[in-house]
Design a protein around this nucleic acid. Sequence first.
DNA 1: GGGCGATTTTTGGTTTAACCATTATCTAAA
DNA 2: TTTAGATAATGGTTAAACCAAAAATCGCCC
Lengths: 261, 261
Amino acid sequence: MGVFMVERRLQCGDKDPMDTTFRKTGQHRIFQDVVEQIQDAILEGRLEPGARLPSERRLQETFSASRGTLREALRVLEQKGLISIRTGAKGGAVVNALSIEQVSESLDLLVRYQRVSLRDLAEFREGVEGNVAVLAVERARPEDMAHMRGLLEKAGDFLEKGASGWDDFIRVDNEIHTYLAQVAGNPIYLSVLRTIYGSIHKYFDRFLPRLEELLHENYRDLCEIVEAVENGQAARAHLLVQTHVYRFNRIMEENAQKESS
Amino acid sequence: MGVFMVERRLQCGDKDPMDTTFRKTGQHRIFQDVVEQIQDAILEGRLEPGARLPSERRLQETFSASRGTLREALRVLEQKGLISIRTGAKGGAVVNALSIEQVSESLDLLVRYQRVSLRDLAEFREGVEGNVAVLAVERARPEDMAHMRGLLEKAGDFLEKGASGWDDFIRVDNEIHTYLAQVAGNPIYLSVLRTIYGSIHKYFDRFLPRLEELLHENYRDLCEIVEAVENGQAARAHLLVQTHVYRFNRIMEENAQKESS
DNA sequence: GGGCGATTTTTGGTTTAACCATTATCTAAA
DNA sequence: TTTAGATAATGGTTAAACCAAAAATCGCCC
């Protein structure tokens, strides 16, 4: 494979005066060099998703590094979500198709570490979803509306099943929000929103009371939102989404307080 | 240290039927077990920020794992941002005060991986900065306003120096935007905005003509924005910021088109 | 006694070589 | 044709050694 052009970009002991990023320890670590080379190859598209990296013993030769050092590099790439590793013959490291997991994991770590509060996360979500709604109004095509009406109908069905349909309803609710972001047509919003959901979802289970009344309220909101999007009412959609998300957040916050007291 | 109660939670070959999360490879890896134990200790506060972990050779005994395996675990924890590692005597792994930076890094990776367009990035920035402005209006204290006026003054000084102050002016402009996010008081917005700047900055140099007129326009915008924040005009600040960012984006886009044609 | 340079000690970084565990593939028997 | 067992490829783990960096210590000289 001609993907890695240079075996070792820095020799042991070399200085790198061009390095503008502050490297905490200041020390040169070979496995970091390997990480950078492989990461660059992936990010620049020289290694596409699905591509299989050579075996550890092969890479060992390519980079003139020991297997242990190489494995440390692979661990980092795995943790970054860039590759997956399987054992066995024909196993090895495979380049991942973009995964949102890592971002949600670090967001999740932050919340658990109490560096950001559930309230921060909720507020951020409120803002992002509001923006998404405005863009969605601008860009919704008839077929998008048809699909959304379909989702709404599905939600309505689950609603009628009462408490037993709770999880299903929440799932469809989620789909509707995510679909709005898709309609908005900006992949960053879509990614960010998925990340938020990845982090916030477990709080739903913990802090949302499984009241039927809540689902009905929610359903009415969704209907109004879809309607506003269909009618091209950007400001109204914006307000409705924000209010909708805000109400959710309030309920969660109240229950979170109850639990902690 | 009595922090780690069990040396090895799962023996080689054991199944873990309680594990509800889907583990892609299904395989049990010792270093993952070590990661989990140390991570739990950190997240549950048994290991506080600043605490120093035992040396690798000591941990080796604690977990009955080889040094190589242990180092893979430390790599993962380091990548997660939970610990920092320093060489030398009294070096070793230290528990980090977790910061929002980790999220930025993975977000950045995501943006680069998806190869989002400048237009997507710009549009996202427009939305985010608009939201930030609204929050900043709500939460600005007198001392925040004083600081912003100081920055504005600095920008004015660089403006008078004409083309030679271009880079400095852009830097201060950047500071003002970032400070707004700080005033907004939500660390997620701050982190996201910093990430955006990290990604978008290279386009500034490439696509922004170094015209003095541009700086003057920019400066007038900033003055109006600060004024709106000071007067508590949320809607106005929102609009001003969006227009300001939008204008920037238009100029860059035009120059990007010119260059590609 | 107080500085200050050389030495020692501690700790992470790297290498090597070997063995185990898992999985795909091939092969030969039923 | 199917299937059970052998084989090979590949990641996971261990062990023992050495190097490099940084703090602590020692000892010399003033």
